[in-house]
């Protein structure tokens, strides 16, 4: 996926300015940056949720700028938002069904089984309302819902929010496994920058809606100035 000269925001309010980005296939691209840098807006504009003023989002050689969310989802792009990423009033099993909404019945049931094999912990909650799950369990369900659609590209927003450090680490390892075993392309927006950059391939540092750094994830992690000022990573 490529993003060319993107200006985007909400209503009349611009958040992203002249953004150029390349998300190579079968890699993890990490986007880090301080609060308000426009990380979530970036994902929202790819998915057709935010307003795009100018510029292009090109996915698999096709221009998908302004495609409505439900169509983008059917093209194999799967978005796991940071907040409100499960249907609290629906049971775990209904949530998974909804995530694979347009699949046929057999395909849907197979896929639910496969996804539950990846996250066996969800099996014991299958009939419970998602609103009664803990933060970590919800996040697992949200990722499981993202995987229901057998995505080619996953957009993951702040996976580590509300998670205990040990669980956040496990979730990050899951993300690395998505790339290694399933060959899924991942665009990961993350506050827990250190761990994300460790598993990532390419990294972008976004500050005030503009790209401040692009390069290898490891290079950003080792850049003493940028990592200290923007990511709060101390030199060891």
């Amino acid at each position: 996926m490529n993003i060319n000269r993107l200006y985007a925001g909400y209503g009349k309010f611009k958040v992203l300015f002249d953004l150029e980005m390349e998300v190579p296939a079968n890699e993890i691209t990490v986007v880090v940056g301080p609060n308000g840098a426009g990380k979530t807006t970036l994902l929202n504009s790819i998915m057709g949720v935010a307003t795009v003023f100018s510029g292009d989002v090109v996915y698999q050689g096709k221009r998908i700028t302004g495609t409505p969310p439900h169509k983008a989802a059917r093209m194999g792009i799967s978005y796991v938002p940071q907040m409100g990423n499960v249907f609290a009033g629906l049971s775990v099993s209904e949530n998974l069904q909804m995530a694979g909404y347009w699949m046929g019945k057999n395909e849907l049931n197979n896929r639910v089984d496969q996804v539950l094999d990846m996250f066996p912990v969800l099996r014991q909650f299958i009939g419970r309302k998602a609103g009664t799950l803990s933060g970590g369990e919800r996040r697992m369900l949200a990722i499981a819902m993202g995987l229901m659609r057998t995505p080619k590209l996953m957009l993951l927003d702040e996976l580590s929010t509300d998670l205990a450090p040990i669980i956040a680490k496990r979730v990050m390892n899951e993300v690395a496994r998505l790339r290694n075993e399933l060959g899924i392309t991942v665009l990961l927006v993350e506050q827990m920058a250190k761990r994300a950059l460790e598993i990532g391939d390419t990294a972008y540092l976004l500050v005030s809606g503009q790209v401040r750094f692009r390069g290898k994830a490891g290079d950003l992690l080792r850049d003493p100035e940028l990592s200290r000022v923007y990511l709060g990573i101390k030199e060891s």
Binding site: H70, P81, M98, A99
Partner: peptide
Amino acid sequence: ISMRATIENPLLAGVSGMN
């Protein structure tokens, strides 16, 4: 069920492929 899902969270319903 998709109606209940859309009522609760239109954004998530959209990105899940519901119209």
